[in-house]
Amino acid sequence: MVTTDSLKKELKGLDFNNPETIIHKDLDTLIEHMVDYIGSIDPELRDKLIYTTFYYIINQDYLNHQQMDYLLQTCLDPNHLFLSIGSENDDSVFTRAFSSLVVALVLGKDRKERFLSEDTVKKTIESSMKYLLEEEDTRGYVEEKGWAHSIAHGADLLDESVKHPLFDKTLASECLDTIRRCILIETAYVDEEDERLISVIISLLEKEMNENILKDWVSELSDEVTEIRASNGFSPTFFRKNTNLNQFLKALYFRLLFLERGTQTRKEIERILKANLLV
């Protein structure tokens, strides 16, 4: 098996402004090695080299359709996107989070070129929701190991799923339920996870989701947090979930305002935030 040092050296030798450094590579072997180390705890190797290389070789057409299908199928398997899913505060989160980014890259490429089978795309869309529903490690930046950012990366994948032409609009409510779970988690977010989740909502609206669905969902979300306060008082659980809710609603409000969308949803958010000020 290739060592981390040799893989680093090979990846640093790639120059995306000079195709000659790439086209003569054995890309089948290279992408296998990159997948092997996709969850490395070395942030330079994982983030700056492996992910960045995947970004360029996928978007600049260095990989053929068979290679991208291989990447997708591998990153979706139990040893990657779902490796030790449900665990917290261990290094498996890096494999899950960075696998989700690679899946998003391939799905985004397929959105434009359509080379994946319909069954594969549908499986990927289902997996994007399943992943966010089951991820328990919500750390953003991890000292000495760099970004995990699992919820943000998972949101990027879910966003690509919604944008795909094979996304079924009847899944809109299921997507919103997935986002709800991410907001009402025990951890208060500090690394702009809410902004990435909101991008999914905007994509749903662009897929012509009825705005009343969003308005009602926002109202139900607020009611759920209010019920937590009624049951548990001003507990740490309430404050963390209420913090996430308020940050999310404020960010959603202004995103909708800037896009000149969601008039009724914005009015509902105003009502919720005003009510919270009176508590």
Rank of each mutant, 00 (worst) to 15 (best):
I38T: 00
N59T: 14
G154W: 04
S92K: 13
D110L: 02
Q60F: 11
K163I: 01
A148R: 02
E113A: 12
N59M: 10
K123M: 13
L63G: 03
V142Q: 03
D77T: 06
R46G: 01
E134W: 00
G108D: 10
L133W: 02
Y70F: 15
I58A: 10
V106T: 06
Y55D: 15
L101Q: 05
Q73P: 06
T95F: 00
K130N: 15
T95A: 02
T74C: 11
G108W: 11
Q60K: 15
P165R: 01
D137Q: 04
V103A: 14
K122A: 11
F54T: 00
S99D: 05
D119I: 12
D91R: 11
F98Y: 15
T95C: 10
L132K: 03
L101D: 02
A148T: 06
Q73T: 13
S40N: 05
G154T: 09
D47K: 09
D47E: 13
V102M: 07
T120W: 00
L81V: 11
E144P: 05
T52F: 12
L63R: 02
S40K: 04
E144Q: 15
G39R: 03
K122M: 12
K122L: 13
V162G: 07
R96H: 10
P165D: 04
E88Q: 14
G140R: 04
K130Q: 15
F98E: 11
Y51N: 07
P78T: 09
E88I: 14
E118T: 14
M68N: 11
H153D: 05
Y51L: 14
Y51C: 00
Q60N: 13
M129R: 15
E126K: 15
Q67Y: 07
L116G: 08
S40V: 01
K163V: 02
D77H: 04
S40P: 00
D156A: 09
S87C: 07
T95N: 08
L166N: 09
D91S: 14
L157C: 05
Y62E: 09
S100F: 00
V162Q: 05
L49R: 05
D61M: 08
Y51M: 06
Y62A: 09
K123W: 01
L45M: 02
E144Y: 15
D42Q: 03
R96V: 08
S161G: 12
R96E: 07
H164N: 03
N79W: 05
A148C: 01
V106H: 06
Q60T: 10
A148K: 05
A104Y: 05
H153P: 06
A97W: 02
D77Q: 11
S99E: 04
F54K: 04
F98C: 10
Y70M: 12
L132V: 10
S117N: 08
R111T: 14
C75H: 01
G146R: 03
L166R: 07
E88G: 04
L49K: 02
D156P: 03
K123N: 14
I57L: 07
K109T: 07
I85D: 00
E126N: 15
I151P: 10
P78I: 10
E118I: 13
Q67P: 06
S84F: 08
T124I: 06
L158D: 10
N59L: 11
D91E: 15
Y37L: 12
Y141T: 09
E160C: 00
E160P: 02
L83T: 08
